[in-house]
Amino acid sequence: MIPSTLAYTKASSIDEAVAAVAAGAVPLSGGQSLMPMMRLRLAAPEAIVDLGGIPELVGICEDENEIAVGAMTIHREVAASELIRAHAGLVADAAAGIGSPQVRNRGTIGGSLGHADPHSDMPATLIAAGASVLVRGPNGERRILVEDLITTYLTTTLEPGEIITQVRIPKGDDHSAYAKFHRRAIDWTIVGVAICIGDDGVRAAATGVADRPVRLSAFEEVLNGGGSLDDAIARIAEGVEPHAGLDGSVEYKKHLLGVLARQAHAEASSR
């Protein structure tokens, strides 16, 4: 299949990109989700603006409290980053398992968040890591918790004209892991569980069990209240609403949550 007619511009600065998006263009980052949708004509933007020409959107660095990952940093770089591995291993875990090597060579952390697919790996891990994004728009820059970024299928709280410029991941000792389950290696995640065990308690999030990535609040509540892992897993599916599909029933997906939480918790605890 073939994309519909479109107008392409390549932004050379964030301001240029913001102006284009404000004028109605769809931002093109790695294109690994958007391009297939355009080829199938499930998406037919009249204009796209390529963020691939803005050097400041690429790269991983740190300050005292946070790791800053440029929105256009590709998954391969995130997976290979010692810095991310040291402070938020689960984010590196997730990046290493997205798509195929070819997809990881093009797909970006910002694109993954902005696309807001409910089966995407990256958002759940960033939620568990307590990460935020910096976004730039016509009214300047603001910061949004990843947890507050995605509202439903392919929908974010970004205002018109806003683009994600940076992902900010809090630094800390890494006791975190991401466990996911899928059919073929290349397939979308059916269910994934991200767990971060920090000084202030356990944070957990899941993908594939709602129309967006979700915090596993009941699970966290039990663990942070001193309860056992078994007790936490018994309540893990509270509030989640997976959809039955060719990849499994609602019951199966709720069950997988527990299985994967146990895996992720063991892995996180051992790190």
Partner: peptide, 16 residues
């Protein structure tokens, strides 16, 4: 048709 593409129709890869 619920399985028209290679995303839904699961032809295995070497990894599988």
């Amino acid at each position: 048709m619920l399985t028209p593409t290679l995303v839904e129709y699961l032809v295995p890869s070497a990894a599988d």
